[in-house]
Design a protein around this nucleic acid. Structure first.
Lengths: 112, 112
DNA sequence: TCACTATATCGCTATATGGTGATATTATCA
DNA sequence: TGATAATATCACCATATAGCGATATAGTGA
């Protein structure tokens, strides 16, 4: 993989590496929302929400359209959720394994 | 999704959001390697490589074992490559679409 | 134990970026 | 045009972290 591509991929991952942006995307999963709606739904102030939305828009992860004085944001790249699914599934499996290792401490010998 | 889970997922994405770490993982895709081998293969200094490897190890993405005075690192979670594949495929599709939009400028009307 | 190699950690600086109040921009309506 | 609402941008501070030289630690063999 070329260095350019590597940088692009890293950039994409970084974009998803912020809990607040993940929460924005999660909100948008239900459908398009205005900035104000997102400000209310999450507990952020307006400039911060706008900033993160601008970043997501620049990264091509969300689209937007005007509706009067409002701006409606929406998911433009559902790949995001595939990625999150993968990571979540993995995290769940990992924590389950950790739990089993802790509860079945000392590798108790089960028959077979 | 809970906030805890969201934070975990974000953390995982951040871990993959550094080009140098992606290059380390790419190197390890071929098999386990010592720190020195990684220092030589990539163009990093030793403390930096060790630091990133420690982060990847803490995150559970790589495993390690001693061999004399050397430490052999290896991929412990192949999910990484699924994630990269998804992102790369997506990036490729996106740039192809951009190219088409640029070259076929003005939405030339093709028959049908 | 001493010397040597490989790796990890520490201390520091520089930079990137998130949060936030103030302000600018854009659109609507009277 | 002026007032108002919704959003975007600016300026600033605080914090996280990458990079790096110096140093500590672990393992090996004489």
């Amino acid at each position: 993989m070329s260095d350019k591509m590597m940088e692009l991929v890293a950039r994409r991952f970084r974009m998803l590496g912020e809990p607040f942006r993940l929460r924005l995307l999660q909100q948008l999963q239900a459908g398009e929302k205005t900035v104000n709606e997102l400000v209310s739904a999450l507990d952020g102030n307006q400039p911060n929400v706008s900033k993160h939305l601008a970043l997501l828009h620049d990264a091509g992860l969300v689209g937007r359209r005007r509706d009067g004085t409002s701006m409606l944001y929406s998911i433009s790249d559902p790949m995001v959720f595939k990625l999150c699914d993968l990571v979540c599934r993995n995290a769940a499996r990992r924590s389950r394994r950790e739990f089993e290792e802790l509860s079945g401490n000392g590798k108790r010998k089960v028959k077979s």
